[in-house]
Amino acid sequence: MITLKENLTKLGYNGLLVSLPLTFKRIEYCTSLFEERVEEIIPTLDKNEKISLVGHSTGGLIIRHFLSKTKHTAKIDRSVLIATPNQGSQLATIAAKLSTTFTKVFKTLDSLHPNNIKKLNLKDISTVEVGAIAGNKSNLLLGKLLAEENDGRVQISSVNYYGLKDFIILPYGHKEIHHQFRTAELVDSFLRIGQFKR
C-alpha cells in the first residue's frame, strides 16, 4: 500500500497507512484494530472534514466490516475497495477442503471463506458511497485453480456486489493492481466525484 499512498500523495491526498496482522488473525480482530486507529484520527479533523477509506484485498473487507458496525459514518466520505473478495475467496474454500490445519493457522484465510464472509453481516451504509476496482490479469499460479475470470487470487464476480456505487475492471493482477498509477487515478476520481472516470 506504500506505492498507492505515494501515488495518491502526488494527486493531492494526505494518506495514512494502517498496518494490520493480515495473516494469522481473523477479520473481526483486524477490524477492531482498524477502528481504534480511526477513532484516534477523528478528533484531529476539522469540523466539516471527512475521511476517505481505500483498501486492497482483505483490507477492503475490513473497511466494509468497519462501516457495518461503526458509529462514525458521518465522518466517512467515500470508500474504494481494490481486488477485495467481497463474496469470499474460492481459494479459501479450496484451502479448507485440503487441510483444516492450514486454515486454523492462517486465520485470515479462514475468514475469507464465503460462509465466514456471510457471518460478518456486512451492511451497506447509505451515507457512504463505495466503489470497487477488480483486476482480470490472472498472472499467478493460484489463479489457475479458479474457474471464473480472476486477477490470480480473486474472482471478478467476488469483487462486485449489489450496493456498489460504481465498479470497474482493470487489466492487472492481484499483486500489482494497487501499485499502478492508473489505479490511483481511478481512486482519486471516485473519491472526488463518486464514480470512476473512464
Rank of each mutant, 00 (worst) to 15 (best):
G143Q: 01
T100M: 14
F102K: 09
L98M: 12
S138Q: 02
L140R: 00
S99E: 01
I82Q: 03
T100F: 14
S89D: 04
H113N: 06
A132D: 06
T100L: 15
T93Q: 15
A134G: 01
F106Q: 04
A83T: 06
P85K: 15
N136W: 00
V130R: 14
Q87K: 13
K118A: 13
A95T: 09
V105E: 14
K107V: 03
S111Y: 12
V128T: 03
V130E: 01
L81F: 02
L141P: 08
L98H: 13
S138K: 09
P85T: 09
S111R: 10
K97N: 10
T101I: 08
K104N: 15
I117S: 05
L142V: 08
V130Q: 11
F102N: 09
K118D: 08
L140M: 14
S138G: 03
G88T: 05
K104T: 10
I117Q: 07
K119P: 00
F102I: 05
A134M: 09
K107Q: 12
N139V: 02
P114M: 14
I94T: 04
S126T: 12
A134Y: 00
N121P: 03
K123Q: 04
S99M: 05
T100V: 13
A134H: 01
L112Y: 09
F106T: 02
T127Y: 06
E129V: 01
Q90T: 02
K137Q: 13
T103W: 13
A96S: 14
P114W: 15
E129F: 05
K119W: 03
S138L: 10
I133E: 01
E129Y: 07
P114D: 12
A96T: 06
S111Q: 02
A132G: 09
K123R: 08
A92R: 07
S138N: 04
K123G: 02
G143P: 06
P85I: 13
V80E: 05
Q87M: 09
P114Q: 11
K118M: 09
L120F: 02
L120T: 02
F106L: 15
G135H: 00
T84Y: 00
V80D: 03
S126L: 08
T108N: 15
D110K: 14
D110N: 12
L120C: 04
L98F: 13
K123M: 05
D110S: 09
S111P: 01
N115K: 14
L112A: 08
D110R: 14
A92W: 06
T101P: 02
N116C: 10
L98D: 07
A83D: 03
L112M: 10
A132S: 11
G143D: 08
A95Y: 04
E129L: 12
G131K: 00
F106N: 07
I94H: 03
L122Y: 05
T127G: 08
N139Y: 12
T127W: 07
L98W: 11
I94Q: 03
T84G: 03
I94Y: 12
G88R: 14
A96Q: 12
I117M: 12
V80Q: 09
S99G: 05
I125N: 13
S111G: 04
S111F: 01
K104F: 07
L98E: 14
T93D: 15
Q87S: 10
S126N: 12
L91P: 01
